[in-house]
Amino acid sequence: MQLSNEMTDALSAEAALGTLRGAAAKRWQRLSAADSKLIDQVASWEQLLAPMANWLPETPVPTGVWNGIEQVLFAAPVPLPARRSTNARWIGATLAMAASLGLWLALPSAPTTISTPALQLKTLATLSSEHQLARWQISQRSDGQVSVSVNVAWQQPANRSLQLWAIDTEGTPHSLGIITLVEQSSTLNLSVTQRDQLSRVTVFAISDEPLGGSLNALPSGPVIFSGKASKS
């Protein structure tokens, strides 16, 4: 059965969240192995959802959970009966290893997949506005680039562009690039100079500019979202 675009998008979101189970998860693995676009969809969902974890309050782990982990990891080993000889222990261990190996060989093999390390995100700022419900999350990826995501569907006019600015300690704005949203998120590929400017940012802002961005080094359109840089 051919899956619709809506169905593959929904399954991609579940795969990113880790909620696929059983036969559905196995089938998704087979589909992803045959179609790299599905892997890209999952990566897009992961990039969109990951910053949302930073908005949740930290919840302490219950003491009972830690006690259970320590009991499993650091419990004292059970002594073997004294009358069992060293040879008997080695024979028993060998038989156990052989049985485990036989069981492993008997299990159906899953298709081999090559996984790449997940990108880590560091929150730089959350931008808001008095007149808009949208909230923009600005994050720096572990590869040095900047991720921009919005919590609601945003429709930008075809003849206008959103531009991200980093304002330094002297109040000078520096353009970080044009925000081109794909499923409510965008990645800005920064130059070495722009990455260096991130360490001196006090405020981030998004302005509404003519198509392609401001024609000079300053915002030419209204600033519609802004927020203070997070303290590292």
Rank of each mutant, 00 (worst) to 15 (best):
182 V>H: 15
107 L>K: 09
213 G>N: 05
191 S>T: 15
208 D>V: 01
197 Q>R: 13
165 W>S: 10
119 L>T: 11
138 I>E: 07
112 T>N: 09
176 L>K: 03
144 G>C: 09
117 P>K: 05
209 E>T: 06
199 S>M: 10
196 D>K: 12
178 I>T: 10
197 Q>T: 15
183 E>Q: 15
129 S>N: 03
205 A>I: 06
94 T>F: 05
110 A>V: 12
145 Q>G: 01
104 W>N: 13
169 T>H: 06
158 A>L: 12
145 Q>D: 15
128 S>F: 00
99 A>R: 01
130 E>Y: 01
87 N>Q: 13
170 E>S: 11
168 D>M: 03
169 T>V: 00
153 A>C: 02
149 S>L: 00
150 V>L: 05
187 T>H: 06
132 Q>V: 01
134 A>N: 05
94 T>V: 05
96 A>W: 02
216 N>M: 10
137 Q>C: 04
89 R>Q: 12
193 T>N: 14
131 H>Q: 13
192 V>K: 12
197 Q>K: 12
197 Q>F: 04
184 Q>C: 01
195 R>A: 02
111 P>D: 09
193 T>M: 11
157 P>D: 09
92 G>V: 00
108 P>K: 05
139 S>G: 07
197 Q>C: 02
166 A>Y: 00
87 N>P: 00
174 H>A: 12
183 E>S: 15
170 E>F: 06
192 V>P: 00
175 S>C: 07
178 I>Y: 06
127 L>K: 06
110 A>C: 01
111 P>Y: 05
201 V>M: 05
96 A>C: 10
131 H>P: 00
208 D>A: 12
141 R>V: 08
108 P>D: 08
185 S>F: 06
162 L>G: 03
101 L>T: 05
157 P>C: 07
101 L>A: 14
128 S>I: 00
138 I>N: 05
98 A>I: 12
208 D>L: 14
179 I>L: 10
179 I>F: 07
154 W>S: 08
98 A>H: 01
194 Q>Y: 04
171 G>N: 09
205 A>V: 05
181 L>W: 06
182 V>C: 09
114 I>W: 12
103 L>V: 03
121 L>P: 08
94 T>A: 14
206 I>W: 08
136 W>S: 07
